[in-house]
Lab assay of single mutants.
Amino acid sequence: AEEIWQQSVIGDYLARFKNDRVKALKAMEMTWNNMEKKEKLMWIKKAAED
């Protein structure tokens, strides 16, 4: 689920960090860890469908 979420937001994060992939990935990891369980559930369901 986290991978699907990352694939959907990586472009936004890379743009925000001027294509600094290391910073973008760290920010994504922090965002994922801070997400509410119900927000993650949507992505977990999406992962299950694929």
Results as ranks from 00 to 15, higher is better:
Leu14Arg: 01
Ala24Gly: 01
Trp5Ser: 01
Lys26Glu: 11
Lys26Tyr: 09
Ala47Leu: 06
Gly11Met: 15
Ile4Gly: 04
Trp43Lys: 02
Ile10Asp: 01
Glu29Gly: 10
Ile4Val: 08
Ala15Gly: 10
Asn19Gln: 11
Ala47His: 08
Val22His: 08
Gln7Ser: 12
Lys40Arg: 06
Asp20Ser: 04
Leu14Tyr: 03
Asp12Asn: 08
Glu39Val: 04
Ile10Tyr: 11
Asn33Phe: 07
Ala27Thr: 04
Gln6Ala: 13
Ala24Ile: 03
Arg21Gln: 09
Ser8Phe: 14
Trp43Phe: 03
Met42Thr: 11
Lys45Arg: 08
Ala48His: 08
Glu3Tyr: 09
Glu3Met: 14
Val9Ala: 04
Met42His: 15
Asn19Leu: 03
Asp50Val: 15
Lys23Tyr: 05
Ala15Val: 13
Arg21His: 14
Tyr13Ser: 01
Tyr13Lys: 00
Asp50Ile: 15
Lys37Ser: 15
Ile4Pro: 01
Tyr13Gly: 00
Glu2Val: 09
Lys38Gly: 13
Ala1Val: 05
Ala24Lys: 00
Lys18Val: 06
Ser8Leu: 07
Glu2Tyr: 11
Met35Trp: 01
Tyr13Thr: 01
Leu14Met: 10
Met28His: 00
Lys18Phe: 13
Ala47Tyr: 08
Glu36Pro: 15
Glu3Leu: 11
Lys45Ala: 15
Ala48Lys: 06
Phe17Thr: 04
Asn19Phe: 11
Lys23Ala: 15
Ala27Arg: 03
Met28Lys: 01
Lys45Asp: 09
Phe17Lys: 01
Phe17Ala: 06
Trp5Cys: 01
Ala47Glu: 07
Lys26Pro: 01
Trp43Gly: 02
Ala15Trp: 07
Arg16His: 05
Gln6Cys: 11
Lys23Asp: 06
Asn34Pro: 00
Lys40Glu: 02
Leu14Gln: 02
Glu2Pro: 15
Glu36Ser: 15
Asp12Gln: 06
Ala15Arg: 13
Glu39His: 06
Val22Tyr: 11
Glu39Met: 06
Asn19Met: 13
Glu39Leu: 07
Leu41Val: 07
Lys18Ala: 12
Trp43His: 03
Trp5Val: 00
Val9Cys: 05
Ala47Ser: 07
Trp5Pro: 00
Asp20Thr: 00
Arg21Met: 12
Asn33Tyr: 10
Lys46Ser: 07
Glu39Lys: 04
Leu14Thr: 03
Gln7Met: 14
Ser8Gly: 06
Trp43Asn: 02
Lys37Tyr: 15
Met30Ala: 12
Lys45Ile: 10
Arg16Glu: 08
Lys18Gly: 10
Arg21Asn: 08
Lys23Ser: 10
Glu36Thr: 13
Glu39Tyr: 03
Lys26Cys: 04
Gln6Arg: 13
Gln7Trp: 11
Glu36Gln: 03
Thr31Arg: 12
Ala15Phe: 09
Leu25Val: 08
Trp5Thr: 00
Val9Phe: 05
Gly11Phe: 10
Met28Trp: 01
Asp20Val: 03
Gly11Asp: 13
Lys45Gly: 10
Ile10Trp: 11
Lys23Leu: 12
Trp32Asp: 00
Trp43Arg: 01
Asn19Ile: 01
Tyr13Ala: 02
Met30Ser: 07
Thr31Glu: 09
Ser8Asp: 04
Glu36Ala: 08
Lys38Met: 09
Lys18Pro: 07
Asn34Gln: 12
Ala15His: 09
Met35Ser: 01
Phe17Met: 04
Lys23Glu: 14
Ile44Thr: 04
Leu25Ser: 05
Leu14Lys: 02
Asn19Cys: 14
Asn33Gln: 10
Glu3Phe: 14
Met28Tyr: 00
Lys40Phe: 03
Lys37Gln: 14
Lys38His: 11
Trp5Met: 00
Trp43Leu: 03
Ile44His: 06
Ala1Lys: 01
Phe17Arg: 00
Asp20Ile: 03
Arg21Cys: 15
Lys45Gln: 15
Asp20Phe: 02
Arg21Ser: 09
Ala47Asn: 07
Trp43Tyr: 03
Lys40Asn: 02
Met30Arg: 07
Gln6Trp: 07
Lys40Ile: 04
Tyr13Pro: 01
Met42Tyr: 14
Asp12His: 09
Leu14Ala: 02
Ile4Ala: 10
Trp5Asp: 00
Asp50Gly: 06
Lys23Met: 12
Lys38Asn: 14
Met42Lys: 14
Ile44Trp: 04
